[in-house]
Simulated scan of single mutants.
Amino acid sequence: MSVAYSFATAATPTEASLEGIVGLVRADMDRVNALILSRTGSEVTMIPEVAQHLISSGGKRLRPMLTLATGALSGYEGDGTVKLAASVEFMHTATLLHDDVVDDSEMRRGKLAARMLWGNEASVLVGDFLLGQAFRMMIEVGNMRALDILSTAAVVIAEGEVAQLAAAKNIGTDEEAYLAVIRGKTAELFAAACEVGPVLAGRTKEEQAACRAYGMNLGIAFQLVDDALDYGGSQADLGKNVGDDFREGKITLPIVLAVRQGDETERDFWRRCLERGEIGEGDLEQAMGLLVRHGAIAQTVERARAYGAAAKQALDVFPASPAREALLDVVDFCVARVR
């Protein structure tokens, strides 16, 4: 018995909600994109081939736009946010290259993952090259506090990825442990990307902390929506195959909630599929049916909305401005991917 369940996507409102930040940072993003292109150059021809395969594959560049927008919010007028924005994008791209190897992923942003074309070794090493270039640009900016924030983020992201490995295939993972994982592997880079803008502008500790809180809560909301979409979105929404989290044995929040509310028979099902990897025909549909029965996807979306509200509230310390309005719209964009 198959269970049909899907989200209606709000394509037009979602696209519209990014218009504010895109317009706000358009000129600087042109400079960021040019810098990204120049810094992927290498005499080793495989490096630009692998890097550009992912970088040019249609990502929204949300994280570097956040660095530029929080810089604008803080009144920063120098060139430093351009290099830090490029650094943030390189860090993000490196983690995607590494993640696809760890997860044996076949698709990324609707295209074959780099590992499927060049192999795991090349994907890992090009990811390392991009991290190296990111740190070179941070050094060129010359702000030790910004360097500390982004280098600490690199450590925390790696810790989050390892923590996810430890939690993988363990249906005993609870909500608190799962949220700790996504704070590290996803939200930390959002937080760091947002914090460095006011740092470069020399704004108060309160304002720096506000931008960091905005980014952290936004990042958690973003990941929770991704978790929900994996069981009810489309390949176009995700840029990867629907149900990949299930097939890879990933314990995400919908699973945590469904396991907690299910009976022993259902837990046996989750153990077979996720812990032992014994997935047969119809199991994904059964899993989706259990998630719907317990309201696990809807609860995940509600938690995402709550974190989104917290992100918006964090910006209350700043007066109204086009930059602040654009950042508030980004929250709506992230959450409106499902409705």
Rank of each mutant, 00 (worst) to 15 (best):
V331P: 14
M137V: 06
N217Q: 14
V32M: 07
E121L: 14
A304N: 04
R271H: 12
Y231M: 04
C273M: 10
T9F: 12
A51Y: 01
Q261E: 10
L73V: 02
S123V: 00
N33Q: 15
A86S: 08
D332R: 03
A192G: 02
C194S: 03
D263K: 09
E106V: 14
A10K: 13
I47M: 12
D28R: 13
A236C: 11
Y76S: 05
D230V: 08
I55R: 01
N170R: 15
V32Y: 12
D28V: 01
V181W: 00
E161T: 06
C334T: 15
A298G: 12
V196G: 02
G59W: 02
G249V: 14
D237Y: 02
L274Y: 12
A51C: 04
R203D: 05
V25C: 08
M65Q: 08
D79E: 15
L229W: 06
W118Y: 13
A10S: 15
I251F: 10
T186W: 00
G308R: 10
A8Q: 10
S151A: 11
G202P: 03
D128I: 04
N170H: 11
L18G: 06
T152K: 15
R305H: 13
V256H: 08
L253H: 05
T67I: 06
V162G: 00
L290V: 02
C211Q: 11
P198E: 02
E302K: 10
L257G: 07
D316G: 15
A180D: 02
A221G: 03
I279F: 06
G110I: 05
G197E: 00
